[in-house]
Structures are given as structure tokens and as C-alpha cells.
Design a protein around this nucleic acid. Structure first.
Length: 227
DNA sequence: CCAGACGTTGTT
DNA sequence: GTCTGG
DNA sequence: CCAGACGTTGTT
DNA sequence: GTCTGG
């Protein structure tokens, strides 16, 4: 769940989120894929700082080598127990991956997959609740990376995904006003910030299959599909 | 004891 | 089929 | 998440 | 690094 999303302009994020300092530089993107460098916010020295990190968490014990298994999403149920997540969770390495919308693929009766673009009706900018870690390679170079948290889907995302017997998953979405609870709270407070965002405050529409290729980018990717 | 995994989603 | 790259 | 590669020897 | 499986 949630393997592709979009970024707003850096200035737009910085207007929506109060940051003590920024160590980043990026432009608007309409097709961010795993393994790429993404802007995140984290608590540091009593403030919120903006930094770039690799999307796809490399555990500290992996010594800078990306695992063969997927670490782009962390299930909320395993935050404290999964080997890749419990270290960052215990150490309070929480962050927010800034976004302006994301994509999900709907499996159709005919077998095809139709991509949908999803965003929030009330918030032009939001964040995915995320964990980060630092891993030092054999060459001594440290890499910071992150994984966004998923939880049971609300009705909108459940429908987009599959109308099957089993409920799907959705990313843990934080409105800008909820960032502090996730970034600065106690572990209990942080966990309380993780809840399915209300479906009635989200919007979704089908988009072109052009989004399938991570090599495509541009505002046309989020345009509503003509029927 | 050592070896091997360490992850997610959605299924026939 | 399965892994890597984006 | 999906797309694209998946191999070798020897060199323009 | 740490847990599970054998």
C-alpha cells in the first residue's frame, strides 16, 4: 500500500509547515517512487527540521545495503516487534514524509489495474507518519532512510483497492496540525496520532496509466481520466 | 549451538 | 518467476 | 508501487 | 543487532 506519491513545491511545503531549519532542496514532483530521496520533517534539538532521506528504510544492522525485502511501508501492528522497525520505534526515530497526494491501483474485474489519485479535500499539503533509521556502510558513509506506516483502510481506500473479503490498508496520514503529536509526543501520544484519515475528507479519481512508469512525471499525471 | 531472516499486499 | 531500478 | 531486466566476450 | 527455526 502506498508505493507512489506526489510532492508540492518546496516553498508551498515550507509555508504549510513551520520549520526551525531546512537542509533540503527539491522541486514539485508528480511521481515519487521508492528508493528516491524525499523530503521529511523530524524533531531535532527542540525544533522541527526538514531533511532529505531515501524512501525505503535501510536498517542500521544492514550496514548501508538496501535489503532485498520491501521496507517502504511499516505495518502499525509491527512497529514495536518487527526487526526493521522496533529499533527506530524504541529510539523515537519518527518523521513525517511530506506529500500533496498519492496513488493507489484498483484491480478491475477484467484483471487490469486502474491507478487512482488521492488527496485531501481540506489540506493542500499533508504528511505520512514515518520511521527513519541511519545505517553506516563499509565505506563509513551514513545513509538515512524512512518507511511510511500503514493501517487498516477507511471505506474509500478499501473500495479503491479491492472489494474483496479482506480489508485493505492505507497510509497513516497526518494533517499539518497533527505533526507535533507524532514528532514530539511520548510514544503513547505518537501512537494515538495514528488513525485512518476520514474518508469524507479525502478525494479520489482515476488517472492515466502513464503514472505506471516511474520515468514519467509532470502535472498531467494527476489529471482526471477522460471516460 | 549456528543459520537465516529481517517486508508488504493481496490471493488460488 | 524474481530481482533490480526508478 | 510498476517497469524492465534477466548474459557473455571483448571492444568503437 | 536480535529473534526464530532447525
Amino acid at each position: 500500500m502506498c508505493g507512489r506519491y506526489i510532492l508540492a513545491q518546496q516553498a508551498k511545503f515550507e509555508r504549510a509547515v513551520q520549520l526551525g531549519r531546512v537542509h533540503w532542496e527539491f522541486t514539485a514532483r508528480y511521481n515519487v517512487a521508492p528508493s528516491q530521496s524525499v523530503p521529511v520533517v523530524r524533531a531535532a534539538e527542540g525544533m522541527h527540521e526538514g531533511v532529505m532521506m531515501r524512501w525505503g528504510l535501510i536498517p542500521f544492522f544492514a550496514h548501508g545495503v538496501p535489503p532485498k525485502y520491501s521496507t517502504i511501508n511499516a505495518t502499525i501492528e509491527k512497529l514495536a516487534s518487527g526487526p526493521a522497525w522496533r529499533g527506530p520505534w524504541k529510539r523515537g526515530q519518527r518523521c513525517v514524509q511530506l506529500a500533496a497526494g498519492f496513488y493507489e491501483w484498483h484491480l478491475e474485474a477484467a484483471g487490469g489495474k486502474q491507478p487512482y489519485f488521492i488527496d485531501l479535500t481540506d489540506e493542500p499539503v499533508f504528511g505520512f507518519a514515518s520511521l527513519w533509521d541511519r545505517s553506516v556502510g563499509a565505506d563509513g558513509v551514513a545513509i538515512e532512510s524512512c518507511a511510511l506506516i500503514t493501517l487498516p483502510a477507511n471505506e474509500l481506500l478499501r473500495d479503491i483497492h479491492n472489494a474483496g473479503a479482506h480489508p485493505g490498508r492505507m497510509p497513516a496520514i497526518l494533517a499539518p496540525g497533527q505533526f507535533a503529536a507524532w514528532l514530539d509526543g511520548t510514544p503513547d501520544e505518537a501512537r494515538s496520532a495514528l488513525a485512518a484519515y476520514p474518508a469524507q475528507r479525502m478525494s479520489a479519481h482515476p488517472v492515466s496509466l502513464r503514472v505506471n512508469s516511474p520515468r514519467n512525471d509532470g502535472p498531467e499525471l494527476i489529471a482526471p481520466l477522460q471516460q
